[in-house]
Each structure stands twice: as C-alpha cells, then as structure tokens.
Write a protein that binds this DNA or RNA. Structure first.
Lengths: 122, 122
DNA sequence: GCCTTATTCAACCAATCAGTTGTATAGTGA
DNA sequence: TCACTATACAACTGATTGGTTGAATAAGGC
C-alpha cells in the first residue's frame, strides 16, 4: 500500500504545480473523471492521469470506480492535516517574532540595508 | 496588488523539501546565518545557500546583512498568505463534501459507489 | 596591505519531472 | 464475439532539481 496518510513532501510538492492546483480546485466542487478534468487544459489525458497519480500518491485525492470511469475526488483529511501543519507553523513564527520584537525594540541591524552592490568584472 | 505577494508555485515547491522545511523550522525560532543553518545537516554550505535562495525566491525568507554574515529570517506575511489559501481551500472542500454527503448518504470509504452517476452493471 | 571568515557564483552530474506518443487493459453495449 | 469508451502503462525527451567541487566576492582583524 502506498502511503495513504499525509506525506508533507508529496503534499506540498503536489500543490506546487498550477495544473494540479487547478485540478484540486475543480475537485473541490465535486468528483470528476479524468476526461472531465482534462477538458479545460491543453493537455493529453495521459498527462492529466499522471497529475492525478501524483495527487493520489500525496493522499490529497482518492479514486473510485464507475464502470470504465475512475472518478477522482478530494480526500478531505489530508487537506486538513496540511492546513493544520501550516497553522501550527504560523503560530510558531508569530510567537518567535514577538520574542524578537521584545528583544530588539529599536536598535537592531536594520531590516534592509540597501547595499548597492556594484558588480565587478573579472 | 502586491508584487511581492506569494507565489504559490514557488512557496509550495519550497516547502516540499524536508531540508527546507527544517530550515524554516529553525528560522521560526529566530534568524540564523548560513553556517548556523548548515550545522545540523550533512550538506555543504553551498547547498544550504541554494536552499535559502529557493526559500527567498518563494518569499518565505528574507536576508539581511551583518558584516560578512547574511542572516536569514522568516517573512511572516508569506506564511500567512499560504495558510490563508489552504484555509479557503479547505472551507471549499468541506462545503463540497457536505453537498456530496447529502447526495449520497453513504460510506465514503467504500471504493465502489463514488459518484451519483452510477451506471454500473454486471 | 595580507590572512581569515562568511557567503555566493559557476560548472557539472545524476535523478526526477512534466510532457509527449504509442500501446495495452478494463468495462459497456451490440 | 467485436467495436467503442475511459483510463493506465511504457518508453522517450527536454527542463528542472539537489547535490557536488572549485573559484570568486565581501567584510573584518591583524
């Protein structure tokens, strides 16, 4: 069995492609077949099938069976887990920032010292 | 419209690598130099520098200047935007699922009856 | 002015990726 | 059975990626 739980590598990787995000967007409105998913794109069915495989491997999509069709639908939990991870993360960052603000107050290395770096020749 | 705004491709792509997620985790506890970031990894400084470049290009990290050092720190907003995108998304999905549930009133785990367009035979 | 430290740039390499075409499998309907 | 539809598999290709080594750049300390 392939990893059905959330694989952060695979999940983020899957969502890093705009075509796949579009597919996921489409699936958010309900299940669809490969053919239906492929329609808006200028892509072969095989390419879309591959994208679906990537999403499925990442645990974001599940496939069913309806005669010759293999409709895809989103797997809610994975998306929830991903969101959870990011939320945790963001909380952590915010906290860190507050600590940093408290430490620095007014003195620190100024955020962006615009160093006009003249490029030298070789 | 913000041109610095988040690039979903780049942001998700950046977070799809475990080394980069570890770097981001480290940075969530405060800024760090390339050398400091590289320490826990069995990687060259150049490799870590490249990872930082990826994160910077994605808008997730900002670089500063402190003498020879170029400390990296997280860029809070990007992380917030990413989380926001996913939250929106998840909301959409949940809504879709509720609609689907209403239609099917069935066990979503069973692979067989996935769509309302069931045409199976045999 | 050298050294030393911190970081990046440049070139390269192997692996992976997104796409293609062509073929094969699975299921329906006659 | 045979034709048709929907999808997957296989092999290939060019581009990208994650890593390396080696050289260059930037800044400070002596």
């Amino acid at each position: 069995m392939r990893t059905t739980a959330l694989d952060l590598d695979a999940a983020f990787g899957a969502l890093s492609d705009p075509t796949r995000r579009a597919i996921v967007s489409r699936l958010a409105r309900g299940p669809a077949t490969v053919g239906e998913l492929a329609e808006p794109f200028d892509l072969t069915l095989q390419a879309v099938s591959k994208h679906l495989a990537v999403l499925t491997r990442a645990g974001l999509v599940e496939r069913g069976r309806d005669a010759q069709r293999r409709p895809a639908r989103l797997s809610g939990p994975a998306l929830g887990d991903l969101t959870g991870w990011l939320l945790d993360f963001r909380a952590h960052v915010t906290e860190g920032y507050e600590r940093l603000d408290a430490l620095l107050a007014d003195d620190p290395q100024t955020p962006s010292p615009p160093t006009p770096r003249a490029r030298r020749k070789r």
